[in-house]
Each structure stands twice: as structure tokens, then as C-alpha cells.
Design a protein around this nucleic acid. Structure first.
Length: 934
DNA sequence: AGAGTCACG
DNA sequence: GACGTACGTGACTCTG
């Protein structure tokens, strides 16, 4: 950074952008954009204030330099000093959230510089810039009325309250604090701040604080001479709370050395570009302002149609056709730099990586695609290979590519710049790839998740499906480039000219989808869902996936051998019983043996004409004393465990890390649950003894243990809350055995000394209710006559009438709205709810289940999003999520503290948005392996 | 590619 | 009165 670009004779305005936003929001009535209902009241106020600043400050007072400073998202270093800092701030109002990025756009449109920095408040940046500019000899005006900034006043630094049109100098600061600017920190440390949760000294306000500071000179003298204070209570407070006061001082002291990359020359004031500013105002549909500014700039005011604006709905542009020939191939530094300039001018970029495969932990980066405007995209080839390769790799790099490191050096700043939005389709993938090249991509938007939040339950959210459905365009298939099967090649072997068309198109599509989806978020009522439950999960899951979990290969290998031997024995036995050899793994052949050859009863053919040979059927046959199906059941269990777990899991061990790295799919399940793939670590066996041994292969690193915490009965608790079942709520409050209580209510038996069979039946009913119970289903599950099952259900509804009401109301809601909702506002669409015939039952049960399963999914998502900050001070790592369970790897000595912290986050995950009528309870376990921990 | 089966919550 | 059925996933194997 260069301090010489500002100095004597210069005047810099440091505008508190976040302050502007909140004042504009609270001062103005809610205003929405006519064409689509996007809330824009705060943006409008913000623009007015910005413009007024620029206009009013002409003449001798006019700034030569100006920069708008914003608060970045997320926690700041002050939370590390004092976790409660600003902790009881409510989240920003729903209709303000989408306006934050728009105010950045507005600043850019007005041709003004802006800055923000993750981990620091706008006030810290202002302090840092103010001090540097002042020290260089420039005059500084801080445009804000925030009292927290008053400590900076003096020596050529003034403040200006843009709303009251009032300058704030030394005199006004003394008026407010009773001391000069240099003692403001001392007074604030004592007085504290209830809004920001700065504790200060209890019972001492600004008046008393000023009195004390004036008497003793400064805070340190006051604290060291506290014994001299006459008033006993005040004396005691200052002695006892000295530490708290010092922490408060750390909190209120603005950081004057915030690490920033900037150059004052970037902040030189220049006239706004008429086209740019009017384009923005037109998009926002600010008629009055655009007319006023147009006349000031001496151009014609643009027409803003009254009717729903196609300009806005399509994202400012009429549909541009897809044209692969328009895509640019970036092959030299100059071209790359001009793309970076384009991105800065825009403020956002669609971003996509091309790699040699699909496993983010292993594959190499091949190229990068960018797009900032529909129809305009580029591909930057980086590591394409020359020719087809040979036995020895044939690893010559193709000609005409920017060296990887050089390209990354140029791209890294913009990809990490907090003011530049990076847009991806499943950007968790690209985040993980780039993390391996030391690029920490942030902030991000994800078109897959934007779609998931708005269209969950309607369709999947892959790029191909979204492009066809929403852009009426079928993307080039990757298979046309790579081929299929054995002859398939990797992307680095694709000729660059062909790669450009495919790869750049992905970025183009992503950008178009974003322009379509992002403005619809609010109208769809899922801004909060996207902002709190979807997007923040991206970095959390990326980290968990990169952590991976250690797996004991030898343990698995021994089990595989063991299974193989037993299977061989069983196979011989089965063939003998059948009287012939056949493939035990073939359901078709097995069915023919059982029901045609041996003529056993119960042969039912499915729609394909094959006999059904599922567990239920085989178990029935085995129960009647048939050995063959019993042996087949044993064989099947071993075959399953061997192929899916003990064999396959070994192939997933990453050679570099020695660990298994799953991938979570955020938008996989319609209810909001995650899905785990490659490998699926959410279905590792636990129910059978043989299966549980597989969990023993999941181990902690030396000196560590695995720590597992799971929600106890979370879905039943949520059901008790949603359906308002008082008896269940009370039982959960009293910590009773919920299934025993259900049984006692249903069958009028005491809980003490209850027959386990009765409890088992009640448990099955409880689960059945969550799934949208039916007599048939319960009968099959419990293996009792259908009549009996139906009478259980009738009794259940009698004893807990709220359940029936909930089920009816939910189906009714689904029919009316075509979606159902979780407690946190996640919408799950129920397109088939009006279906006739067999479909009807399915859809109703799914609709009944979705709010329960979905709310539970939301709860653990909230816990996961908060977890990294909560455990940042601990050596613990979060590794896995299994729907209601989180697994951590923790050094032994930190287990107790980690358990306490994690349990707190999980049990309070609903706060402050939802207050459950039942407590959430989390059970914990630890051990050297997952079997012990669970 | 789809069906069948079975592992999990 | 008859449909057919527990809710939500992913991986593996066989088969056409």
C-alpha cells in the first residue's frame, strides 16, 4: 500500500456504509420494487444519502478522496475476546437481508470506492484509514453519527452527521461524553453498552464515568487507585470488576492497524458515469431519483415502465441466445487481467472449475471459467496436456496456457475479495478444489442451493435440469467431450478449442440462473432459509469433508477375508439344500428355486414377473423351519457387509491422508436432510452385531478419541411441539420413557414393570405416526393382523387427538398451497398431493412426514452452522453428520469441554427463531472407535 | 438403465 | 369399494 498517494491539501470522506443502510431502513417506510416485490426501501434511502453527500459537499469542503466502508459478514475478532459481544443482536430483518448486496451495487453504480474486511468491523477499517490519512497530512471527515467512532475525532479528523447535517468536532464529543476524544475509550469502558453487550462496570453510566475519569486522569490511574474512591459501592465495583472493565476497553477500542490492502489513489473522487448509475436506478425502478439525477447529469431520464418490467424479471437484459463461438479462450496475462477488471467493475462473477475427475480430494485443476454477463464467458485453460498421452503419461503441457501459478496469483485476490460475489453451481466442489491451491473462495452464492430453497420437492437441482427448465437450453453433454466407459478420457486430454465451448457455457448458464433465481428468493419467502440453512453450510461441510475420518484398513481387510470364508461355506450348504448350483446373489434364480422347484408357499410375483425374495418373505419362510431361506439370509447379510462396506470402504481411503472423505449433498433430500455419497457414511451398519464390527474400523488418530453426540428422539419431540400434544410434551419435560408412556396411555397399563412387547408395539406406533401411519403398514411392521393394527391406531388417535388434527391440517395445507413448511420456513413442495389412485396415499404420507423430518434437519443444520465458531478455541474437529448425530475427533484432554460446548450448541440450536415447547436432549459418547462412541 | 435388495436415521 | 401403502436416503448386484 502506498501512503504517498494522499497528503497535505487532500480531504478524504470515510462513509460508514452500514450505518447508512440501517438508518435508511429504519427511517423509511417499506418500499418494494413494483415488478417483482423485491424490498428496496433501504437501497433507495441509501442512494439518496450517498447522492446527497456527493452533491452537498461541493465547493471548498469537497472531498478529494472518498470510500464507503461496510461491515463484512460474520464474527469479528471481538467475539474471540468476549463471546457475548453483540451476541443478543437480533438477526437482520428478513426484508433487509437481500438489500445488503444491493447497497454494494449502488455504491459501485455511483462510481464510489468501497471496502470491507472479514473479521473486522467497519469502524476498525474507518479507524485505520483515518489514522493513515491523517498522519499523511490529509484532512479526514468520517461520515457517521455513531458514538463508537468519536474516539477518532481531533487533529484534523472530524465527523459529519449526514442526516442532521451537522459536523461533529471536539466540542460535540465533549458534550456527549463529558471528556475529550482521547478519553472517550476510558468512559466507554466504564459505562459499557447494553446494545452491543459491552459489560463495562455495573451501575456506572456515562455521567459517572466522565466524573471519575476527569478526577483520576485516565482509566489505568483510576483502576490502580480504586481504593481511594469514597463511595463504598462504586469502590467495590471498580475493584471487583477491573478485569471486566479491561475487557470492555479491548472491545470498544477501534483497531487502527486493520490489515488492509488498498491504495488511497483508488479512492480519488471521480464523476459518476451517467449510463452506469442510471442503469442501476432503472433496474431498481427508482423513478424520482433517476429523473433528478438524469437532469443533474444533463441526460434524458430513462423510461421505467409501470407494468411488470421484463428488464428486471430477466435480470436487466432480454434473453441473449447461447452462442458457443462467443466464448473467449484466455491464453495470456493481459487477457486474464482484463477479465479481472471486468469482475471488479461488476462486483460479481460466475465461476466454475474443470478438473480431471470428480473426487475433489484427488483430482487436479485443469481450467477455470468465468462469466459476468449472459452470453459472455471465458475459459482459462491451465493444465491441458499435449496429445493423447502414453504409458509414461505423455505429460507435456499443451501450448498457449498461462502457467498455473501465475494465473492463480492474478485470480486469488478477486476470488478472495469480500466485496466480490462468486457464483457457482454446486460451488462447494469448486471451493474444495481451490482450497487445495491455497485459494479461499468467499463470499459465494450457489444456484443449486438457490433452486433448492425455492423449488425443493419439485425437481432436482443439477445444472442440466435447471438449464432445460428455466433457460430452455440443453447444455453440451460432458460425455460428448470425454466419451464413456473404458475409452473415456479426462478433461485435461480434451483439446482446448473444444473445452472452451463446453466449459465457458457452464459459467454462462450459472450466471443466467443466478440472475433469474436470486431476485425471486424473497418473493418465494425463502431468503432466511437460503441465508441461514443452505449457503452457510457450504464452508462447514467443505471443511468436514476435507477433514475426513481415519479408517483402519487392516481391520476391514480381516473382516473381508472372514466374510468370504463364511460365504463360501454357506454357498455350498445352500446349493446342497437346493439340490443344484445357482447364483445365490440372483433374486430371480433364488425365486425360481424356492417357489418353482421346491414349491414353497408365499411365492408372490412383482410387476416384472419375478418372485419377490426380500427379507420379509425369507424370514417368514425361515420361521416355518425352512433352512434354505435362513441360510440365504445369512449369506445376504455377509455379502452386503462385504461388498458395500469392508471391501468398498477400503477403496475410498485417500492415499495421502489415510482417511475416508465423503461428500455431502446439500440439496439431495427433499426434506432438508443431507445425503452422503462416495462413500455414503450415513448408512454404516449398527443394528446387527456383525455390522457393528465395521464401526470399529472408524478410528481416531493417536491421542484422540471420537466423540459422538446425537439428538434423543428429536422427531417425536418436534411432533409433540407441532401437533401440540400436551401429554407428550409433559413426558419429554419430565424425561420419561416416551414409548412406555405411549403404551401406558394406550393400553391402560402402568409404566412400572411393563411387558417389553407392549412397549415395542407402542414404539412402532410412534414411528408410524411420524411416517403418516396406516393400518396396513403397521400391521406388516408388527406382523399382526390388519384389524388389530387399525384398532391400535384408533386408540392412539383417541388418546392423542392432536395427532389426527395435525395430519388432517397438514394434508389440507398441502392441497391448498402445494407445499408444506418446516418450523424454520423451509418449503417442501408437494406436487402430487392431488394425485388420484395409489399415488394419493404416498403423497399424503410424505406431506405429513416432511415438516417433522424437515424441522429436525433444519435444527441440526443450525447447530452445524454455528459449530465452527463455537469450537474455534478447542482442538476439536467436526467430521461427520448422520441426520441426528454429529461426530468429532478430539484430543483426549479436550473431550469434556468439547462435549459441553457442542451439547450447548445442539440443544439451543432453535434459538432465537423458534421456541420449542419441548426440551431438546443430546446424548454423548466417546471411544477409540465409532462403535464405542455411538 | 432399472429393478431388487438392504444398510442407515 | 378398491386401490397399494409406512418417511427419507445411497450402493451394490444382477439382468436385459
Amino acid at each position: 500500500m502506498s501512503e504517498n498517494s494522499i497528503g497535505r491539501g487532500h480531504h478524504i470522506h470515510l462513509i460508514d456504509g452500514s450505518g447508512f443502510i440501517f438508518r435508511a431502513y429504519h427511517a423509511l417506510p417499506p418500499l418494494t420494487r413494483k415488478s417483482d416485490g423485491l424490498p428496496v426501501g433501504a437501497v433507495s434511502g441509501f442512494c439518496n444519502m450517498l447522492y446527497k453527500m456527493v452533491e452537498d459537499q461541493k465547493g471548498s469542503d469537497a472531498p478529494t478522496h472518498l470510500v464507503v466502508v461496510f461491515d463484512a459478514k460474520g464474527k469479528t475478532f471481538r467475539s474471540d475476546i468476549y463471546p457475548e459481544y453483540k451476541a443478543n443482536r437480533p438477526p437482520a430483518p428478513e426484508d433487509l437481508v437481500p438489500q445488503f448486496p444491493l447497497t454494494r451495487d449502488a455504491t459501485r453504480a455511483f462510481g464510489l470506492a468501497q471496502i470491507e474486511k472479514t473479521g473486522f468491523e467497519a469502524d476498525d477499517i474507518i479507524a485505520t484509514l483515518a489514522v493513515q490519512a491523517r498522519d499523511a497530512g490529509a484532512r479526514v471527515t468520517i461520515v457517521s453519527s455513531d458514538k463508537d467512532l468519536m474516539q477518532l475525532v481531533g487533529d484534523g479528523v472530524e465527523m459529519y452527521d449526514a442526516m442532521k447535517n451537522k459536523r461533529i468536532g471536539r466540542e460535540q464529543v465533549e458534550e456527549k461524553f463529558g471528556v475529550g476524544p482521547e478519553r472517550v475509550i476510558d468512559v466507554q469502558s466504564l459505562a459499557g453498552d447494553s446494545v452491543d453487550n459491552v459489560p463495562g462496570a455495573p451501575g456506572i453510566g456515562i455521567k459517572t464515568a466522565a466524573l471519575l475519569i476527569n478526577d483520576y486522569g485516565d482509566l489505568d490511574s483510576l483502576l490502580s487507585r480504586a481504593e481511594e474512591i469514597k463511595q463504598p459501592k462504586r469502590r467495590q465495583t471498580l475493584i471487583e470488576k477491573a478485569d471486566q472493565i479491561r475487557i470492555s476497553r479491548d472491545l470498544v477500542t477501534l483497531k487502527q492497524d486493520t490489515p488492509l490492502e488498498f491504495d488511497f489513489s483508488d479512492y480519488e473522487v471521480k464523476a459518476p458515469d451517467a449510463d452506469t448509475v442510471l442503469k442501476f436506478l432503472t433496474e431498481m425502478e427508482f423513478r424520482t431519483m433517476s429523473a433528478r439525477i438524469a437532469s443533474k447529469l444533463g441526460v434524458d431520464a430513462p423510461a421505467i415502465p409501470d407494468a411488470p418490467s421484463a428488464v428486471v424479471a430477466a435480470g436487466a437484459m432480454p434473453d441473449v441466445p447461447f452462442d458457443p463461438d462467443k466464448y473467449e479462450c484466455v491464453r495470456d496475462l493481459g487477457a486474464l487481467k482484463s477479465w479481472v477488471d471486468k469482475i471488479y467493475a461488476r462486483g460479481y462473477v460466475a465461476f466454475d472449475t474443470e478438473t480431471t475427475g470428480l473426487n475433489e480430494m484427488v483430482v487436479d485443476l485443469v481450467g477455470i471459467c468465468l462469466s459476468v454477463e449472459p452470453g459472455e464467458a471465458c475459459y482459462i485453460p491451465l493444465t491441458h496436456k499435449d496429445g493423447e498421452g502414453d504409458l509414461f503419461g505423455g505429460d507435456n503441457l499443451a501450448e498457449g496456457q498461462i502457467p498455473l501459478e501465475q494465473a492463480l496469483e492474478i485470480l486469488r485476490p478477486v476470488l478472495q475479495d469480500p466485496s466480490i460475489m462468486k457464483i457457482g453451481q454446486n460451488i462447494k466442489y469448486d471451493t474444495k478444489i481451490m482450497a487445495r491451491y491455497d485459494v479461499a473462495i468467499a463470499p459465494v452464492d450457489d444456484t443449486m442451493l438457490l433452486s433448492y430453497a425455492q423449488h425443493g420437492g419439485l425437481h432436482n437441482h443439477g445444472m442440466d435440469a435447471l438449464a432445460e427448465r428455466y433457460l430452455d437450453h440443453k447444455p453440451i453433454s460432458i460425455k460428448t467431450l470425454l466419451g464413456t466407459g473404458k475409452s473415456a478420457i479426462t478433461f485435461d486430454r480434451v483439446p482446448i478449442v473444444d473445452a472452451v465451448k463446453y466449459a465457458a457455457e457452464d459459467a454462462d448458464i450459472t450466471l443466467r440462473l443466478w440472475q433469474k433465481f436470486k431476485p425471486q428468493l424473497h418473493a418465494a419467502g425463502v431468503t432466511q432459509v437460503y441465508e441461514t440453512l443452505e449457503r452457510p453450510l457450504i464452508p462447514v461441510l467443505a471443511n468436514m469433508e476435507m477433514n475426513g475420518i481415519k479408517v483402519d484398513r487392516d481391520h476391514l481387510s480381516r473382516m473381508s477375508n472372514n466374510f468370504a470364508q463364511k460365504m463360501a461355506g454357506l454357498e455350498t450348504e445352500i446349493h446342497e439344500l437346493a439340490g443344484q448350483e445357482f447364483n445365490v446373489g440372483s433374486p430371480k434364480q433364488l425365486g425360481e428355486i424356492l417357489f418353482d422347484k421346491l414349491e414353497l408357499p408365499g411365492g408372490k410375483k412383482g410387476k416384472t414377473g419375478a418372485y419377490s425374495t426380500g427379507v420379509d418373505i425369507l424370514e417368514d419362510l425361515a420361521a416355518e423351519g425352512n433352512d434354505l431361506p435362513a441360510r440365504v439370509l445369512d449369506w445376504r447379510q455377509m455379502s452386503k457387509l462385504k461388498s458395500t462396506y469392508t471391501d468398498a470402504l477400503q477403496t475410498h481411503i485417500n492415499p495421502d491422508t489415510g482417511r475416508v472423505h465423503t461428500s455431502y449433498v446439500i440439496s439431495g433430500a427433499s426434506t432438508g436432510r443431507l445425503a452422503s455419497t462416495d462413500p455414503n457414511l450415513q448408512n454404516i451398519p449398527v443394528r446387527s452385531d456383525a455390522g457393528r464390527q465395521i464401526r470399529e474400523a472408524f478410528v481416531a488418530d493417536a491421542g484422540n478419541v471420537l466423540l459422538s453426540l446425537d439428538y434423543s428422539q428429536i422427531e417425536l419431540r418436534i411432533l409433540a411441539h407441532i401437533a401440540e400434544i400436551d401429554a407428550l410434551k409433559q413426558a419429554f419435560y419430565e424425561g420419561q420413557d416416551i414409548h412406555a408412556l405411549t403404551a401406558s396411555q394406550m393400553f391402560d397399563v402402568p409404566i412400572e414393570g411393563m411387558d417389553p412387547m407392549i412397549r415395542r408395539q407402542a414404539k412402532a406406533i410412534n414411528f408410524g405416526v411420524i411416517y403418516g401411519i396406516s393400518g396396513f403398514g403397521l400391521a406388516r411392521n408388527l406382523r399382526i393382523p390388519r384389524k388389530e393394527a387399525q384398532s391400535f391406531i384408533d386408540t392412539y388417535f383417541e388418546r392423542f387427538p392432536g395427532i389426527r388434527t395435525y395430519m388432517d391440517k397438514t394434508v389440507e395445507f398441502a392441497k391448498q398451497h402445494k407445499y408444506v413448511e418446516t418450523l424454520f420456513g423451509r418449503k417442501i413442495h408437494t406436487a402430487n398431493i392431488d394425485a388420484k389412485g395409489p399415488q394419493a396415499g404416498f403423497s399424503k404420507r410424505a406431506a405429513i412426514n416432511a415438516p417433522i423430518q424437515g424441522t429436525a434437519a433444519d435444527v441440526i443444520r443450525r447447530a452445524m452452522v454455528r459449530m465452527p465458531a463455537a469450537i474455534a478455541h478447542l482442538p476439536a474437529k467436526m467430521l461427520l453428520q448422520v441426520h441426528d448425530e454429529l461426530i468429532f475427533e478430539v484430543p483426549k484432554e479436550a473431550v469434556a469441554e468439547t462435549t459441553e460446548v457442542v451439547r450447548g450448541v445442539m440443544e439451543n440450536a432453535c434459538e432465537p427463531v423458534v421456541k420449542l415447547d419441548v426440551p431438546l436432549v443430546v446424548d454423548a459418547g466417546t471411544g477409540a472407535n465409532w462403535a464405542e462412541a455411538h
